[in-house]
Simulated scan of single mutants.
Amino acid sequence: MLELVALTGTMVYSITNNFPFSSWGEALFLMLQTITICFLVMHYRGQTVKGVAFLACYGLVLLVLLSPLTPLTVVTLLQASNVPAVVVGRLLQAATNYHNGHTGQLSAITVFLLFGGSLARIFTSIQETGDPLMAGTFVVSSLCNGLIATQLLFYWNAKPPHKQKKAQ
């Protein structure tokens, strides 16, 4: 749900500010994937009616956010709320890595692609939107992703301690 809120915030903020589709299009497709997953989770739990209600409520919220009824300050606040969400999520991961003394089963490819992608998004958001909030979000994301990437390199050969079998 938090990911859906973040994606919706980016998408609504970008549409409201008339940014080019290339600056927010991935948020649209990720949002569609996320709501599909949410619906399917409910459907396979036998809660199809609840899933349909979720889709209807989300559609209604999206319409209200994109309508002239929603003040620009609310839309901006929604986009700005992405920054603490990114920071908290990444710092929790970094703290867990530090506490464990290893990065567990984090995928090196995924970590480095996230880091590189967030770096690239700084420049594309500056070029395409010129918006400091959008660029700032990606600067913060890059710093946090860089921390995780650094930990991955630092703990590269560290292994989780083996659990000893209990004697019977």
Rank of each mutant, 00 (worst) to 15 (best):
L2E: 15
G9A: 14
T10H: 07
V12I: 15
Y13T: 05
I15L: 11
P20Y: 07
F21A: 03
S22V: 07
E26A: 10
L28A: 14
M31W: 15
T34Y: 14
I35K: 12
I37Q: 10
C38S: 13
F39G: 08
L40Q: 09
L40W: 14
V41D: 05
M42L: 15
Y44T: 13
Y44E: 10
R45V: 09
G46N: 10
Q47F: 14
Q47Y: 13
K50R: 05
G51H: 15
F54H: 03
F54C: 07
A56H: 06
L62N: 04
L66W: 07
P68C: 00
P68S: 11
T73R: 00
V74W: 05
V75A: 02
L77V: 01
L77F: 08
S81P: 00
S81V: 00
V83F: 02
V86L: 10
V86K: 04
V88I: 13
V88R: 01
R90C: 04
L91N: 01
L92G: 08
A94D: 00
N97Y: 06
Y98R: 02
H99D: 01
H99F: 05
H99E: 01
N100M: 09
N100V: 02
A108R: 11
F112K: 04
F112W: 15
G117I: 07
S118D: 09
S118V: 09
L119Y: 06
L119F: 14
R121I: 07
I122S: 06
F123D: 01
F123P: 04
T124H: 13
Q127V: 04
T129C: 07
P132W: 08
G136D: 08
V139S: 03
C144A: 12
C144M: 15
N145W: 11
I148L: 10
L152W: 15
K159I: 07
H162R: 04
K163P: 04
K163Y: 09
Q168R: 04
